[in-house]
Write a protein that binds this DNA or RNA. Structure first.
Length: 158
DNA sequence: GCCAACGTTGGC
DNA sequence: GCCAACGTTGGC
């Protein structure tokens, strides 16, 4: 049984859900926002999350991932060649952390951002839908999780 | 490409 | 500690 539900944003041109399905598992590195980092620290093995495609033509939820390793230092922060390099990160104080996630399953169908917005049961509460929300890792309420799953089992717009 | 909203930085 | 300036995110 999963403990909590989450949402992970990714730009499909950089790393999409199709690629995770092929590779099976990945390190969620490169998060450089304290709030998002703190949320990752709360994640437990077995937690599930939505995989959200952002900054692309078809924004929305593509599938489900599972947390397979709890927070540990994000080594890209100490890699000078990485775009996520942070000179303030040290071995003793890595600052940034990441989790590992694995492909869990596809949704019956893609649920678009427009559809999520159009659902009044989600619009008021879901972090993703709040005005100006930019968090790349977000908590999802079990109620919201269930609603999105139900939407993906129905037809678009229904 | 535009631009609103956000988080961070740095001067004071 | 305040807050203006800046860089980034991300939908449209």
């Amino acid at each position: 049984m999963p403990h909590n539900y989450w949402l992970f944003k990714s730009e499909p041109e950089t790393y999409g859900f199709d690629r995770l399905e092929r590779e099976g598992r990945t390190e969620w590195s490169g998060v450089r926002n304290y709030q998002a980092r703190n949320l990752m620290k709360e994640m437990r093995v077995g937690d599930l999350g939505f995989f959200y495609h952002s900054s692309t033509k078809d924004t929305g939820i593509a599938g489900i991932v599972k947390v397979v390793r709890e927070a540990y230092p994000d080594f890209t922060a100490r890699d000078r060649k990485s775009p996520y390099f942070d000179p303030k990160a040290t071995e003793a104080k890595p600052i940034w952390e990441m989790v590992d996630v694995a492909f869990e399953r596809r949704l019956p169908r893609f649920v678009s951002l427009a559809e999520l917005r159009a659902n009044p049961a989600l619009a008021a509460t879901m972090v993703l839908l709040k005005k100006g929300s930019r968090l790349s890792v977000q908590p999802v309420h079990p109620r919201e999780w269930k609603i999105v799953l139900e939407m993906s089992e129905g037809t678009a717009g229904a």
